[in-house]
Design a binder for these strands. Sequence first.
DNA 1: GGGCCACTAGACAGACCGGTCTGATCGGAC
DNA 2: GTCCGATCAGACCGGTCTGTCTAGTGGCCC
Lengths: 200, 200
Amino acid sequence: MATKAIADRPAAPGRPTARERLLAAANELFYEEGIHVVGIDRVIERAGVAKATLYSAYGNKDGLISAYLAGRHEIRRRRVTAAVDRHEAPREKLLAVFDALGEAFAEPNYRGCAFLNASAEVGPDSPVMQATDTYRGWVRSLFTDLSRAAGAPDPEQLASRLVLLYDGAGVAARMDRNPGAADMAKTVAATLIDAATAQH
Amino acid sequence: MATKAIADRPAAPGRPTARERLLAAANELFYEEGIHVVGIDRVIERAGVAKATLYSAYGNKDGLISAYLAGRHEIRRRRVTAAVDRHEAPREKLLAVFDALGEAFAEPNYRGCAFLNASAEVGPDSPVMQATDTYRGWVRSLFTDLSRAAGAPDPEQLASRLVLLYDGAGVAARMDRNPGAADMAKTVAATLIDAATAQH
DNA sequence: GGGCCACTAGACAGACCGGTCTGATCGGAC
DNA sequence: GTCCGATCAGACCGGTCTGTCTAGTGGCCC
């Protein structure tokens, strides 16, 4: 089997850590099929890891779910940041968020917002909701900061409207299988930004 | 126990039919907690109905879920139609859809779009997806027809944009616990409608 | 060489799931 | 009165779930 079997600390040479393989498997399975319908056995089978290792690394299934969502948050954050950093003008930075959305929608296995999907499966006091609130707080503050930089007189209001488009595009991409929703949201966003920042 | 125990056909005097009680219980439990986490036993317990009755009335759990979603669709359809019919002008009819949305968001146990939540829990070939496609097709054609009546030169495009706001408002109401998202969506919708129908 | 520790494989427990089946009850049609 | 069909209550089945536990393995440090 050639199990390298090194834990977390020492940088494993070739194969990823058991912890990393676990997270990668969870990332695929939880996202593609849902956090509830995917059992622990499926995750450890794909990761090629023993069950005890999962429980020693993440405590329980909720811990793994939290790590999965945190990873999703980080991936999205990096993608959006990269797109935003490609531009200088605040207006273009705002619009670039929707370019990042379009990249995500274009991925072959896109299945909607991971946080929206996960929170649909759990009760209000689940750790999922905490991760979701964190994610949505980040999105909102990103839009608010960029709106302020763009000179909007009411950055919170403009941000709320852009979040509306951000969410709506995600729903359309998933439910209507329409990856082009990002472009449409971007077009509408441009008119909202221009209307909010117009000198009058 | 005073079980009236009348089936479907004869109009029961006081108590609703077993079939109706089943649907009402499913409507509450599936919506509030999710279709997967709620078991058959919970539904029949709340409905005060024997398990065999459920299976004789709906075939299996999927049948009950389909009936639950069809009921949700009908409730939404009625609410939106009532709001739209309160107005004469196509522009006001379009905006009235968001009034109906605001009514739904204001309900105490609002937990997001039932179709969005349900489809997050199932695979792509589930009967849930069929009910979801039907629902979304109705929403889209409603917006398209009203946009055409309002004189929009590209009714499909305006409808797609309004669907974006419709979905975004639903997400915000649920995830940000912000029932006022309907008003914001309505405001943005008004500017989009006016921009699309402006003579130039 | 010896101890340590992460890891593997898999049995196991206890709960819950959807769905079937049996047997009894009860109202209404005739 | 008799039959029928809907209903009720609940046992039961096979399967799956999360999580724990035992036992063994193999690389690394000293």
